[in-house]
Design a protein around this nucleic acid. Sequence first.
DNA 1: ATAGAATCGGAGAGCTCTCTCCGTTTGCCG
DNA 2: CGGCAAACGGAGAGAGCTCTCCGATTCTAT
Lengths: 191, 191
Amino acid sequence: MGDDHSSARPLRADARRNRERVLQIAQEALASDGLTISFDEIARRAGFGVGTVYRHFPTKEALFEAVLLGRIERFVADARALATAEDAGKAFFAWFARVTEQAVANQALCDMLESGSVLRPGSTLEDDFTAALGRLLTRAQRVGAVRADLTAHDVRDLLRGCLTAERRARARDGRLRMTDVICDGMRARTS
Amino acid sequence: MGDDHSSARPLRADARRNRERVLQIAQEALASDGLTISFDEIARRAGFGVGTVYRHFPTKEALFEAVLLGRIERFVADARALATAEDAGKAFFAWFARVTEQAVANQALCDMLESGSVLRPGSTLEDDFTAALGRLLTRAQRVGAVRADLTAHDVRDLLRGCLTAERRARARDGRLRMTDVICDGMRARTS
DNA sequence: ATAGAATCGGAGAGCTCTCTCCGTTTGCCG
DNA sequence: CGGCAAACGGAGAGAGCTCTCCGATTCTAT
């Protein structure tokens, strides 16, 4: 997923190793500390000079994207895979719970999903995310599993809120899942 | 509220005027920009040197508390006033919606309610808030209006999440209220 | 009006953060 | 093994933030 601009020239062996190490450490640091962690701090934890890290990733944002974009792309892929499931209601709620579950364990992922746009303007990932979500939603609404007045953007916003709530609840004791409550709220009231 | 340490000596007339102006500007700045706004920026907007603002409020936090604490105290007071309402379910949901409604219009209030503790450690406001909320909740649960498995802390966390979601939704178009969905999720499923 | 106290203004200390630059070190190939 | 391109390290520029200090200014009591 990196910015290999491949076919240019293969990285020297030590450089490739170091690049991997930076990604590994950045991944851990982002999961525990979120997007506010400083670039210097990541370099320090990885045991490199800050210049070395900048050699591999030209900006802080580039490094963070290298770590996190794949995770979000997988959410989109999951949604697409579930778009043909038999039970549309179950598929929708399973996806919602799965995204929450994964994101809650990763501070930076939460920050990114909660923030205004997943990426710097110009990317289409945010749109892909909402579109894939929208297909799950529409099918679930068609079978009467989800309130008909919700849009994909509404669900997107509820997901943000769910992350905020669930993360807090987990920090306390994790007994009750806030996600359950919010999913219940999205269910159609037909029955 | 204020740190008047009254009965010391009355402020000079110009100083009192300036103090009021700082509070006024800070209130507006916090509502629109949230807790991340800088102290210098508030001084600039108010048209004062930064030293003047520090004369009135010894730290950034002190200024922010002077602006925001009263708002949160009013939420607590509202909850206490509603604790004797006839319809316990209606009282609970009305309070929840009221807090959301007020906070959503004020970025800094959201930041404060969503952050870990309302105040620096040592204050009891956070506890008062949760306790007052808890009384509304218990009464609503007793009449079967709210899921029995929710605790006051759960509702506190759902409120945080609701603010995140609702603020986003409002920024889009404000048609559907995310608060409705989350309140529905909190309702008992008895019927 | 005037002295003296209260208040103001803003330069700047000290901190953190992102990112650059370049002298030093290291891996690679003939 | 020798030489050179590639990679490394970290000092430091530059920006932003909180907060302090003290000379300049303004109010007020007499």
